[in-house]
């Protein structure tokens, strides 16, 4: 068993809330997201999602839970042999959507994220920013209950980044609980949303008013204005621990 990647984390996410997840590289952001999109199981602790205990959910229950979650992966994770339209259509197809209906929705969304001319293109011929937009479209096409985005604006220009953030905010207004992992502190400040900050595997919750939190203070271990929120929220994660071979290695083995 390797060293712990995440330690003694307890938080509740209120349904329909918007949170940013920040922290330096290797702090455990991706690992925490993996727990939340059920790619990993915690070595101990309790995760409640959609009013269900999911840390030991049976395999047969995972697809149903995962269909309620939209994920924007840091490395996009698109299927290279499928077109942009087909990639985005996958969640709808998996839910048994009808062909024409799927196509109409997907094309509208792709046009909205600025990929109207790239619909039939396959990921290998798309730029990093275009792939990211396809990945985002795939994550939001079904209007998930929980949206998890790992550096969703990392590869796009400011105009597109703004547009994507607008999309996330709009979805959030419609009731989608949203967690966005990012290094972009400007974007965090602009959005004025609550922030979850990971430092050395521990989680600290900040109110929107604490958005002027300085990274160097974090590194120095001075967590001014941080408090753990104890309110009763929707999705909850109680004290999971992830063990990795290297403490600084993001997404280390469970």
């Amino acid at each position: 068993m390797g060293s712990e990647v995440l330690k003694d984390i307890s938080f509740n996410l209120k349904p329909g809330s918007l949170h940013f997840l920040t922290g330096s590289s290797g702090a455990g952001k991706t690992s925490l997201l993996k727990l939340m999109y059920l790619a990993h199981r915690p070595s101990r602790g309790k995760i409640t999602m959609f009013r269900e205990d999911v840390e030991n959910a049976a395999r047969r229950d995972l697809p149903r839970l995962r269909r309620r979650i939209g994920v924007v992966f840091q490395d996009f994770r698109l299927l290279d042999h499928l077109t942009a339209v087909e990639n985005v259509a996958l969640p709808l197809w998996l839910s048994g959507g009808k062909g024409t209906e799927i196509e109409q929705h997907v094309e509208e969304l792709l046009a909205w994220v600025g990929l109207k001319d790239r619909m039939k293109s396959r990921p290998p011929v798309l730029s990093g920013g275009e792939k990211q937009r396809v990945a985002i479209a795939r994550a939001v096409i079904k209007r998930p209950d929980l949206l998890l985005a790992d550096e969703p604006t990392g590869n796009v220009d400011p105009a597109i980044a703004k547009r994507i953030m607008h999309l996330f905010v709009e979805l959030n207004k419609l009731g989608t609980t949203t967690v966005i992992a990012t290094h972009d502190m400007e974007m965090v400040k602009r959005a004025g949303a609550a922030r979850m900050h990971l430092h050395k595997g521990r989680l600290h919750l900040l109110d929107p008013g604490d958005s002027d939190f300085r990274e160097e203070e974090t590194e120095a271990g001075e967590f001014g204005g941080i408090r753990l929120d104890q309110k009763e929220y929707g999705p909850k994660i109680y004290g999971p621990k992830i063990y990795g071979a290297n403490e600084n290695e993001e997404g280390g083995g469970v």
Partner: peptide
Amino acid sequence: RETISIMHHLGAEDSM
């Protein structure tokens, strides 16, 4: 393996 993993995360059932 990667395709299977992606499909799982999108909510594909093992039988699919």
